[in-house]
């Protein structure tokens, strides 16, 4: 597996079509991993672009880390990754929390970003997600998987439940993730969002709880376009080909 050292930690990356002139870098969401792009979205983009995917710290096959889940640390990591891969500027896409990382990256380092695709970025002020961390237990995970992941059709068996439980326990109880999330609660009201001038594609599910955030971002960001696709917050799983084609068209034109 391609593992590289970024800021003294092992980071799992995947690259497709390395020879292409332009690069699209894809950021997954919290509690997920790069596989959300690997099977459908990345291969579509790789027809025209060099595609880079990576697992965020403590996610997928990247090394566990106790600290640095705030957007500044996450974008520092991304800069170091770009440097390690000799990438000066890229098209950037992020899903869910990865969408917030993408927005932060474009506001901190506009010279490194050409176009921006934001998929289902939530408003970090929403306390529901943080409430999950407070209420977390194995029973909660079983209930959650049983009742709220039905739209992705994937059912978890015991080994997977154990694996996921271990990841959540680590992230919720042994890392700074919760405090780092609380510290970011006003991120979308940051003045840097309204002065973003990168062409920005906002992709949201028509039935998503986050759609309002997409509409709000569309008003705030000058050169943005909001497209609603069938589905909810899980649109990269529900409509991967639609998303891949839309992103490919947006980055190409």
């Amino acid at each position: 597996m391609p593992i590289i050292k970024i800021n003294n930690r092992n980071v799992h990356i995947q690259e497709l079509n390395k020879g292409a002139a332009e690069t699209v870098l894809l950021i997954h969401g919290m509690f997920s991993n790069l596989s959300v792009y690997y099977f459908n979205i990345a291969p579509i983009l790789a027809e025209n672009f060099h595609v880079v995917m990576y697992d965020l710290k403590s996610h997928g096959m990247s090394e566990r880390t106790q600290n640095g889940y705030d957007l500044k640390s996450m974008t520092d990591d991304l800069c170091a990754l770009m440097e390690a891969l000799n990438l000066d500027n890229i098209h950037l896409a992020g899903y869910s929390f990865g969408g917030l990382i993408a927005l932060k990256m474009a506001s901190r380092f506009p010279e490194k970003i050409n176009k921006l695709a934001v998929i289902e970025a939530p408003d970090p002020k929403d306390e529901k997600a943080r409430g999950i961390i407070d209420d977390y237990s194995r029973a909660f995970l079983e209930h959650y998987v049983e009742n709220f992941t039905d739209t992705t059709k994937v059912k978890m068996g015991k080994r997977q439940m154990d694996r996921n439980h271990r990841m959540y326990e680590y992230l919720f109880y042994q890392t700074s993730i919760k405090a780092d999330m609380i510290a970011e609660k006003d991120f979308l009201n940051d003045a840097s969002i309204s002065v973003l001038d990168k062409p920005t594609l906002l992709l949201y599910g028509v039935d998503s709880n986050c759609l309002e955030t997409g509409q709000w971002l569309n008003q705030k960001i000058k050169r943005s376009e909001l497209i609603s696709v069938p589905g909810d917050h899980n649109i990269p799983i529900q409509e991967p080909i639609t998303l891949g084609i839309m992103m490919d068209t947006f980055f190409k034109n």
Partner: peptide, 30 residues
């Protein structure tokens, strides 16, 4: 086998590493 998607990514990479360009396994899955 209860493999999740990141494990299937690892499995795909092993097939790619073993067979090289002979087999477009990820393309087939996609």
């Amino acid at each position: 086998l209860e493999m999740d998607s990141i494990e299937i990514v690892s499995f795909s990479e092993k097939i790619k590493a073993h067979f090289g360009n002979e087999i477009d396994f990820t393309g087939w899955l996609s």
